[in-house]
Amino acid sequence: MTTNLAAQINGVLAALILLTAFGLLAQRRIYGMLHLFALQGLFLSVSTAIVGYTAGLHHLYVSAVLTLILKVFVLPYILYALVHKLHIRKEVEDLVNIPTTMLIGIALVIFSYHLTAPVRELSTLITKSTLAVALSTVMLGFLVMITRKKAVTQIIGFLALENGLFFAATSATYGMPLVVELGVALDILIAAFIFGLFFFQIRTTFDSLDLKEMEKLKEED
């Protein structure tokens, strides 16, 4: 596989990741969001493996496998089990309507491309063009968290944001050191467990997973 081809494939994968990020913004069903998230993880994992192969960095394989296990199988499964257990049937509710959210998302992507232009000029890595996509994935993840009402969707948004960070690390510097990546993977896993606990706690306290209920926690003047 030539470098050029690798860059091409990587570009396609980046486009798919961006697409799934937009998918998360547009999707109204929770199960649909989970599938999209798993897909995003899969693209991320493949992309990491390809970068690792072309750059000859073997520790990236470990990252790829970790990503595959954690983000494609384990985390979606945990969230799936949670949603099932908590009987969350309702569609995703959003604060801002979806077309507006998509427009904001597009603006964010353009902003990211503008922002990473100087890096693209300087970088010599094959992944240089995907940095903008990584940054937009981070921002879109953030946007998911801001525009959704339910706690579960916030978590998906957060995990998507983390995907974007991971992708940014691979595309900007061929990944972080293995120790750091292992640590981050562990953190994400533990975070998922803690989120699970919190869901139960929030539901038993407020009888709902709607974050609006948490406004009651505010101190009265």
Binding site: M139, F142, L143, R148, M214, E219
Partner: peptide, 18 residues
């Protein structure tokens, strides 16, 4: 600045980031 709405808090950090 404290509204108790998590989305507003996230928006604060988002705006800071931008």
């Amino acid at each position: 600045m404290q509204h108790g709405r998590i989305q507003i808090y996230l928006l604060y950090s988002f705006i800071t980031l931008i």
